[in-house]
Design a protein around this nucleic acid. Structure first.
Length: 428
RNA sequence: GGAAAGGUGCCGGAGUGGUUGAACGGGCUCGCCUGGAAAGCGAGUGUACUGCGAAAGUGGUACCGAGGGUUCGAAUCCCUCCUUUUCCGCCA
């Protein structure tokens, strides 16, 4: 949520930022409602003040034996006026609130202005020594590899649930579990994160806190009976750990890492990239979340990206880093780097991580503050990044490590976790 | 799922319709005292919105789990929901 004071004081700046984010903003409408809202608040407060004053007098008058009946009548009328005013205010505030909740975050000044993904900026790439991704090689894709090695069974996943719900079997399931454990341990031991294991189903307040609601409601699985949502990312429960709380300054930065399955309906994208792992409704992800002081948040974003990169280097997976342009930024983000891993079979880059700084956008929605000594509380800045999503990572991992004989070599770093160093066809 | 009892400020804990933003105690902050400290004494100690002000500040409104209602007036009465504890049932 944007600060209404900022919008009031710099409407031009806000509008430009939103336009760059491809948002059809309603700032003028919002400001008008804000004005009306404040008028009604002032009027209502005056009426209530009058009411309180008289209420205070009544017991005194009663004691003095004065007849208070005429006052009661007057007060009843005043009460009706107040009610009418409050009703009017409620309508205005609901609309005001709604527009504000649908208004995305502003892009940071360091974000390149652009319309779409094509305007994203590649800031660096890392290719393992000896690997050449330019020349197209004849390789099997992850679906074929999964089948041949009996480690991925998309057909049966579809039977069990529906398309986009993968089934891992044998060494495939073990590899998936190993990846998750490896990544968690890596961040805990090398990057100073504290592990959390959260609920995977959350309430509306949590979804609103991180910005999924109200705008992205259609993209989420909703349990009608309980009014609860399946999480699309661990960002939601982890960030909401501190919803409605004030942290002590010296505890910052707080760095959490947690595993969760992620559930996404992917409404409106049927048929696009639908093959195998490229776009699924359920996948696994290790997520990093930070709560930091505002003045540090952009340094923290850089280190967040570096933390995710370290995993890929350790696994010897080729990747590149994109700085998203204003038009491709997500709703809540002020600045975001995507990490894409290389798929030789698709001969293209696949998004495996998104690392974002939300500044105070989520903190304001979720009411997360920090306090220094006796000073007034301020909103923290929140960040999060995948470190990483296993599905797309698995594609790169399998395809890049396949051998001419059809087997797949497990990267050195993962072997303590898998307990085997190769996956071969004809064994389960 | 059934039954009962609770949810008050940083913490403990009063308060069952009328100067209660909230007694009392603890904590914390500042001051006095001291060579220093403890003890003691004095003062202060929430958040949000909104008006005025350049600011310090100051006026108002709201907030005693959340949301409604009754009343001239609600922390106090009524309704709904959430949550905690205990007991019963069920169960990994």
């Amino acid at each position: 949520m944007l600060d209404i004071k900022l919008i009031r004081e710099n409407p031009g700046l806000v509008k430009t930022g939103l336009t760059n984010k491809n948002d059809n903003h309603r700032i003028d409408e919002l400001l008008e409602l804000d004005k009306k809202r404040r008028e009604l608040i002032t009027l209502g407060d005056e009426l209530k003040n009058q009411k309180n004053k008289v209420s205070e007098e009544i017991p005194k008058l009663k004691k003095a034996g004065t007849d208070t009946q005429p006052l009661f009548e007057e007060m009843r009328q005043l009460g009706e006026k107040i009610k009418k005013n409050d009703d009017e205010l409620r309508v205005i505030e609901e609309e005001f609130e709604k527009i504000l909740l649908f208004t995305p975050n502003l892009p940071h000044e360091s974000v390149p202005v652009g319309k779409s993904a094509e305007d994203n900026l590649e800031v660096r790439r890392w290719i393992p020594e000896g690997l050449n991704i330019e020349t197209k090689k004849e390789v099997l894709d992850h679906i074929q590899l999964g089948k041949n090695n009996k480690i991925l069974d998309f057909d049966r996943g579809t039977k069990i649930t529906g398309s986009g719900f993968p089934l891992y079997t044998g060494r495939g399931a073990t590899l998936e579990r190993a990846l998750i454990s490896f990544m968690l341990d890596f961040h805990i031991r090398n990057h100073g994160y504290t592990e959390v294991m959260t609920p995977f189903i959350v309430n509306k307040d949590s979804m609103r806190g991180t910005g999924q609601l109200p705008k992205m409601a259609d993209d989420m699985y909703f349990i009608e009976r309980d009014g609860l949502y399946l999480i699309p990312t661990a960002e939601v429960p982890i960030t909401n750990i501190y919803r409605n709380e004030t942290l002590e300054e010296e505890t910052l930065p707080v760095k959490f890492v947690g595993y969760s399955p992620c559930f996404r309906r992917e409404a409106g994208s049927y048929g696009r990239d639908s093959k195998g792992f490229l776009r699924v409704h359920q996948f696994n992800k290790v997520e990093m979340v930070k709560f930091v002081k505002p003045e540090n948040s952009y340094d923290e974003l850089e280190s967040l990206v570096a933390n995710a990169e370290a995993i890929l280097k350790a696994l010897n997976v080729p990747y590149r880093i994109l700085l998203l342009c204003t038009g491709d930024l997500s709703f809540s983000a002020a600045k975001c780097y995507d990490i894409e891993t290389w798929s030789p079979a698709e001969h293209k880059w696949l998004e495996a991580s998104s690392c974002s700084n939300f500044e105070s956008f989520q903190a304001r929605r979720a009411n997360i503050k920090y306090k220094a000594g006796g000073k007034k509380g301020e909103f923290v800045h929140t960040l999060n990044g995948s470190g990483l999503a296993t599905s797309r990572l698995m594609v790169s991992l399998l395809e890049n490590n396949q051998q001419p004989d059809g087997s797949i070599v497990i990267p050195e770093a993962l072997r303590p976790y898998t307990g085997f160093d190769v996956i071969e066809p004809n064994r389960s």
